[in-house]
């Protein structure tokens, strides 16, 4: 049996969290490879559907990275929209019987590469402790 590793999809906004990921690369900070970063224009663009589809397609955790509130968002209030979506979705998922910890939203500014690395490591650890979603293990073919 191959050891199970969690898979995490991260939706990062292009202006803050996404830039932080790039800065982490430039600064040669390393973070776990289990995370799949997807850069979007704005965290407010992440529809609940994208998150659910990520879970349905094999993610064990979903991280959303946006700009700090209240004033950092490039599109003025996208981060608040993202926050409300994620909070309501967490409520929905916990009612369904899923651990809401599998979904996480963080504000990471373009300069906070260190914070990105810390959040990713922390989140990965949490999801690893929760185990695979749906109790099915990923095995290499």
């Amino acid at each position: 049996m191959v050891e199970w590793k969690p898979r995490i999809v991260a939706f990062l906004c292009r202006w803050c969290a996404g830039s932080a990921a790039e800065l982490a690369g430039i600064s040669r900070l390393s973070y776990p490879a289990e995370i799949i970063p997807i850069i979007l224009p704005c965290s407010g663009r992440v529809s609940p559907r994208l998150i659910i589809e990520a879970f349905l397609n094999g993610a064990d955790g979903v991280l959303i990275g946006g700009c700090h509130t209240p004033n950092d968002c490039h599109y003025i209030s996208g981060n608040f929209k993202a926050f409300k979506r994620v909070y309501l979705l967490k409520k929905l998922l916990s009612q369904l019987g899923m651990n809401p910890m599998r979904l996480r939203i963080e504000w990471i500014s373009a300069t906070e590469a260190q914070k990105l690395v810390r959040v990713v490591e922390e989140f990965l650890n949490e999801v690893e402790n929760l185990g695979p979603l749906g109790g099915i293990f990923h095995e290499k073919a």
Binding site: P48, R49, I52, S77, F80, K81, L88, L92
Partner: peptide, 20 residues
Amino acid sequence: DMGLEMLSALSSLLLVEEER
């Protein structure tokens, strides 16, 4: 999926004036 769609719409309507 009307639930997710409504959840998304709701987040864009809810307390938009007051969020700051």
